[in-house]
Design a protein around this nucleic acid. Sequence first.
DNA 1: CGACGTTTTTTGTCACGGTTCAATAATAGG
DNA 2: CCTATTATTGAACCGTGACAAAAAACGTCG
Lengths: 208, 208
Amino acid sequence: MTKNVVEDDEQTATKSKSSRTRERLLDAAAEVLSRKGFSGTRLSDIAEQACVQAPAIYYYYPSREDLIEEVMFVGAAAMRTHLEAVLATLPSGSTASERIAAAVEAHLRHELEISAYSHAIIRNANQLPEAISRRALAEVSAYNDIWRGLVADLQASGQLRPDVDPPLARMLVLGALNWTAEWWNPDRGPLEALITTAQSMVLHALRR
Amino acid sequence: MTKNVVEDDEQTATKSKSSRTRERLLDAAAEVLSRKGFSGTRLSDIAEQACVQAPAIYYYYPSREDLIEEVMFVGAAAMRTHLEAVLATLPSGSTASERIAAAVEAHLRHELEISAYSHAIIRNANQLPEAISRRALAEVSAYNDIWRGLVADLQASGQLRPDVDPPLARMLVLGALNWTAEWWNPDRGPLEALITTAQSMVLHALRR
DNA sequence: CGACGTTTTTTGTCACGGTTCAATAATAGG
DNA sequence: CCTATTATTGAACCGTGACAAAAAACGTCG
């Protein structure tokens, strides 16, 4: 086990070699998980992706399930904190519409640029054993809460069209965004074009 | 093997027992596939769901992969023919908007009422070995073509908002619809409410 | 250089799941 | 009923993949 001192205290400027390997394994697991799904993710695939032998993984993680659980949690948490960070940078006088547009961009950028983790979560969150997805689902739930607030703000400002049910609308919008992981790739043009179109469609779908 | 005579010719009024078992297995496979994903789908689960022992499956299908391939193809084809059938019932003078609204309803009803097959396709289409998904993907592609036509009609009628790119818009809409399989259930209220909201949002997202 | 802590590989065990096959049960046709 | 065909099962085979244990390699510091 790596000395805890190094973990918590002043790490040697950059990360220790050990924790870099740990991270490489996590990245590799996310990558495989996003392509093959939970049951299709084999330790040997992860090992190959990370350029180690399979049993080496056990030096860093107690089991396959622990590793995958960590991927799910880290990925979900990153998604939430990224959205929070982006919203926090908006000027305080921002309108509900502006905040929603920013959230759309944040979601798409994070999903399509850091795609392995997001993709892994999106594809697997609902078909994992409860024990593995519990912590991740809590993050996803918090993520949803943020969006719930955004839609509520739009409604409070009187701009939400009256025939859209807020919870349904929120899930439909998030669905459109989540699903981009299944089909979008850089060959379809610049990410910015997708972001612009998505923002426009979302706002027109929600507003009067 | 069942006599081919029975297969192709006048079946004994209702289906033969053999083909009913075959169908029960297909349904069971769709159900398991939709919950567990490709690699997580075990023959023993399918067998249990269909109330037979695992080896019985081999009397009807040559291998696990053949069975799953059939689920994918049948499900995808059903989705496409259902949409075509619904569109065919519309009066000939229907507007592009009316046709799109009908397509949204058709998609959601089929996905959420015949959910096992649709869910299986939606979740697995993009993470299956090419050999297994080839025929299904051809159907999915045909399904996309129909939608491409619907959006093109809207554009031709001059009603498509100029800042939405048709291919991106189509995929965003289909994403919102596909994703409902991940979250919607009857506890969230009547399906009709979802359909109405989705139709309204889609049309407002696309039209001037 | 050499001893020690860290990291990685080698080797092996074990359970699980797809598949086969021979044997048996159900069923229909004469 | 009896027999031929259809349908299903139980037992066994076999490859694979998670995991354990121990040995080897690596690096570092005295």
